[in-house]
Amino acid sequence: MSEVRELPLVEAIKEAYQQEMERDESVFMVGQDIAGGIFPHTMGLVEQFGTDRIVDTPLAEVGMYGTAFGAAMEGFKPIVDFMFAGFFLNAASPILAQTAQFRFIHGSQMSLPMVITGACGSGMRLGNEHAMLVHNMIAQVPGIKVCMPSTPYDAKGLMISAIRDPNPVAFIWHLGTMMDRGPVPEEAYEVPLGVAEVKREGSDITLVANGIQYKNAVEVADKLEGDISVEIIDPRSVSPLDIDTILKSVDKTGRLVIVDESWDSRSTASQIAAQVVDVGFDMLDAPIRRVCIPDIPLPGGHMEPYVAPNPDAIEAAVRDVCQ
């Protein structure tokens, strides 16, 4: 294979938009200030696709989201960009009460192919509303898929899968990964939804992490190398959750630490822990540890670095479990 060029994650997302919009006329984007681009992932797209397909709406999340929701029923494949993922809460009712459950309640007659996207996460000290990760709030409701990339490769592949999927898919990306560079093939390709990946093999402990926390996990694994052999799994999707890949790893290592940049209670971390105990209790040589945000709103200011999961907290959990 020839050498693959490197792109920042945000450019990988943009390439997915571009290639899918070129491939399929029914794909369009709707959001606020996406023609100009608040983040680089939509910058310049309006020149290629025009305002019919790069649609800016007023500051009105319900109407903005409705452009996508209604158009999906009419055979279009919208990508609706909330800018900051937390802003989805302004349209939470139509997303969670209607869109996600629509297909099922109406007798599985309709498909709603659409991508709901937005950026969020710790690192910029933006305070709770801009920073909070919303993947678990969305993933609680059946009928909508939820994914979050950790690498530029996965960002492009997951976005392409999300656009092609016949279901609503929430694609949440972490601000802390925006400019991370990594190999991204030029051609279009899919990274399947609902499939985790063992990103680093190890034998002593299984460490599950995504988004910026995947980077932190790698940092910790590097630091512990020679002392503790860490296997890192990136769930990539939190709904559907690929528990089998995690169980297979835990069967090998006997130990599990889950990092989830979310409130601890009712998180993906707690869900993984529950499922591993249900099915793999006998595999475990030590208690499972979760590294999450304590159940307090994520503060801005100077508190974010120690309230949000961080390499020190991850390392401490790994060492604790491996004692």
């Binding site: 929701f69 209604g70 158009a71 009712s93 209607q98």
Partner: peptide, 15 residues
């Protein structure tokens, strides 16, 4: 949810 359709109606109209 009374008034829910003010949301998708924008997309129905757009399409």
């Amino acid at each position: 949810f009374i008034g829910w359709h003010f949301c998708p109606v924008v997309g129905w109209g757009w399409a």
